[in-house]
Amino acid sequence: MSERIRRACGRYQIEMLASGVVYAGVLIGAKLSAKSIDEPATVLLLALAPIAPLAYGFYAFARYYFIMDERERRIAADAAALTLMFMIVSLLTIGFLRLFGVISFEPDLVLSAAGAILFWGLARIVIASRR
């Protein structure tokens, strides 16, 4: 690996780990704090608080995306395309099943987003192993 990419990769991994830890901490803290707070403005702030570390994580990835080499970028982009298709098919399937009254289960948006990130990570591993 070239020195430039190695340095960028190291920085990306540290930033993603840090944003993940902060995200989990903020999410747990905000959820616990929200139980004892009734003021709408404060609850709104607590609800949006986990977005900040998450956004930083995406920013770190976006920066790394434009530094990584063309093959790695292609793998990340292909995995994102697969994830998009998977999410559309999954959500439409659940949506139609609900529409026709087969199920009453409502997909959780937070879990759906986490599932998409997990699927994208797995897709990257599978695609990379084939290229």
């Binding site: 690996m1 070239s2 990419i5 080499d69 093959r71 790695e72 290229r131």
Partner: peptide
């Protein structure tokens, strides 16, 4: 990889004709 400014995995992939 250093000379091409790509990852070692990419060189490996190129050599195997996978990419």
């Amino acid at each position: 990889a250093e000379r091409l400014d790509v990852s070692r995995q990419t060189v490996n992939s190129l050599e195997r004709g996978k990419y």
